[in-house]
Design a protein around this nucleic acid. Structure first.
Length: 521
RNA sequence: UCCGGUGUAGCUCAGUUGGUUAGAGCGCUAGACUGUUAAUCUGGAUGUCGGAGGUUCGAGUCCUCUCACCGGAGCCA
């Protein structure tokens, strides 16, 4: 089927082409170029290849290739006619798998990689192009002989281009391609990750190739949506982005171990384990700020919830206390859940994620429990925890087993919280902090609270924690010059992704995980 | 770092109280068959049994050391 572009569309293309003629080299980088065969009505024997630019940036996906709105680059047509020929016939416009649902009945061209090829009389190719997955059917009667031959010899992860008619799968109803022609762009020999099971060590060693798998594709796309949701949430909520440095002169919290590196005459620099202390000076400057970037912990912890390099979003706001932190964290979490549930259904389905718990977390108010109450409850449940001790992993799961939604645990003993935490004026042994525990065994996702505005208290805290006062002078300035109540939190991105995707381990939530024993690839 | 476990074909694994020529499935390869979907069926090729040392007539199997990985704990987001 040859989809002839209407005269009007062709004329539009012609006009655009004239306008673009000089600009194409400049525009090219932002346009997507595809070489597509075209023929001219007046010179049918001069079938030629020209370059067509499909610009989604300019025209949006709704006016995609099937509408025939193209920008014509200077090509063969310009040569034989001294300009552009209006009688252009286009066929098989290049598209992406994600657009196929709106292309039923059209002829399209696709490029991508062979996920799996089942050879038989009718040949089936599972194609992925990064935007989605589609089955391509190569039948002896529909495809040309050479293409049919090629389709029978395809190996896993070969790169191919093809043209064909988009139709509905007779059984599933999903779009599939009835192939007319197929070309091998680049072969792939002995792709290591076969369709059968693999061990985690092998997969981690081949992380770059593992990213091509359906499961990893789904996870990384959910991660992307979560990152975008986080940014959109703060950007539209009046927060200003205040990037925190990654190279820092000293420990931010003085607790966990840091990665060190030589830093000229300064001696040592450390990779940041939190941007929070650098957010606080942003509070009097911008009112509400956040940072979102990688952080590093040299902890020798090997668990399903730890990475040595992970991403953290850390908002900080003026004239705010513990209650504001819990409300902000809850709103943000729900915003993220909404975005994922709206836009990533296909990915959640691939991950076999039961979305019911996410729907509950989105609709219901999060639980709240003070540390003191939760210790009492844990004792009831049989834990040997004592007041004043931090939760162990078992305590956390025990506490969450009866919860069907996230839970805020608040007002911890000061003793095991960071030096800068404000204390509760009603019971000074308590810190005004709150942690958000995710359900389904995922545990702490957010930690935050109110920061102390009391400079004298902070001075004693710094001394008490054995920190070098000189390193914190700028931090104390936040209190010296118009210090006000302020509060914020940090959310570990990978833990959020792991929970929302319901993954057994955070190592799959980041493209290139860094862990205690993992630095490559 | 501590405790526990695993290491055998490219991958996932089986391999008996130590015994003679180390197996299966997948993948690969040749073919058959089929709107298939981790397709199926038939044939074929494929091994430093993690490494080093030791016990023994004989070690994939037992012992010692070592390396890698997995799971858990502590610490944390």
């Amino acid at each position: 089927m040859r989809a002839a572009a209407s005269v009007r569309a062709a004329t539009t293309g012609l006009l655009l082409a004239h306008r673009l003629r000089e600009q194409v080299p400049v525009w090219a980088p932002i346009l997507e170029a595809a070489r597509i065969s075209t023929t001219c009505r007046h010179h049918p024997h001069r079938a030629a290849t020209t370059t067509i630019f499909l610009s989604e940036t300019e025209f949006g996906p709704r006016r995609g290739p099937r509408q025939g709105l193209f920008l014509f680059g200077p090509g063969a047509l310009a040569r034989h006619n001294g300009g552009f020929c209006a009688g252009v016939t286009l066929f098989a416009p290049l598209t992406e798998v994600r657009h196929l649902k709106s292309c039923i009945g059209q002829e399209v061209a696709l490029r991508g990689w062979v996920r799996n090829a089942r050879t038989s009389k009718t040949r089936f190719i599972e194609l992925r192009d990064g935007s989605g997955f589609v089955q391509c059917v190569v039948g002896a009667s529909e495809a040309d002989a050479e293409s049919y031959e090629t389709a029978g010899k395809l190996t896993q992860e070969s790169a191919i281009s093809l043209t064909g008619i988009v139709q509905s799968h007779p059984k599933t109803g999903e779009p599939e391609i009835l192939v007319k022609s197929l070309k091998l762009i680049a072969p792939s020999v002995d792709f290591p990750i076969t369709p059968k099971d693999h061990g985690i060590e092998f997969l981690m060693d081949h992380r770059t190739l593992w990213l091509r798998s359906k499961r990893q594709w789904a996870i990384i796309r959910v991660r992307h949506t979560i990152v975008k949701a986080i940014r959109d949430f703060f950007d539209t909520d009046g927060f200003t982005l205040l990037d925190a440095p990654i190279l820092t002169p000293s420990s931010c919290e003085g607790t966990s171990s840091l990665f060190e590196t030589d830093y000229f005459h300064e001696g040592m620099a450390f990779l940041s384990q939190s941007g929070q202390l650098y957010q606080e000076p942003g509070v009097p400057a911008f009112g509400k700020v956040y940072c979102f970037g990688p952080t590093f912990r040299a902890e020798k912890s090997k668990t399903r919830r730890h990475l040595t390099e992970f991403w953290m979003v850390e908002p900080e706001m003026a004239f705010a206390g513990l209650e504001d932190v819990m409300q902000l964290g809850e709103r943000m979490t729900k915003f993220i859940l909404q975005r994922v549930l709206e836009g990533r259904q296909e990915e959640l389905k691939i991950l076999e994620r039961d979305t019911a718990p996410l729907e509950i977390a989105l609709k219901e108010s999060f639980g709240r429990m003070s540390y003191t109450d939760s210790v009492a409850k844990l004792k009831e449940l049989g834990s040997d925890i004592n007041w004043g001790e931090d939760f162990g992993n078992d305590d956390e799961t025990m506490l969450m087993n009866s919860m069907d939604r996230p839970l805020w645990v608040h007002r911890f003993p000061k003793s095991f919280k960071a030096f800068y935490m404000a204390f509760d004026p009603q019971s000074p042994e308590l810190a005004l902090g709150a942690d958000l525990l995710a359900p389904e065994g995922y545990g702490e996702v957010i930690g935050g609270g109110e920061r102390s505005s009391d400079i004298d208290y902070l001075l004693t805290q710094i001394e008490h924690h054995g920190l070098n006062l000189a390193d914190y002078e700028w931090y104390l300035d936040v209190r010296r010059f118009g210090g006000v109540q302020h509060a914020g939190f940090g959310m570990g991105l990978e833990r959020a992704v792991a929970w929302i995707c319901r993954l057994p381990h955070v190592r799959e939530t980041i493209p290139y995980p860094r862990m205690m024993g993992t630095l490559r690839p």
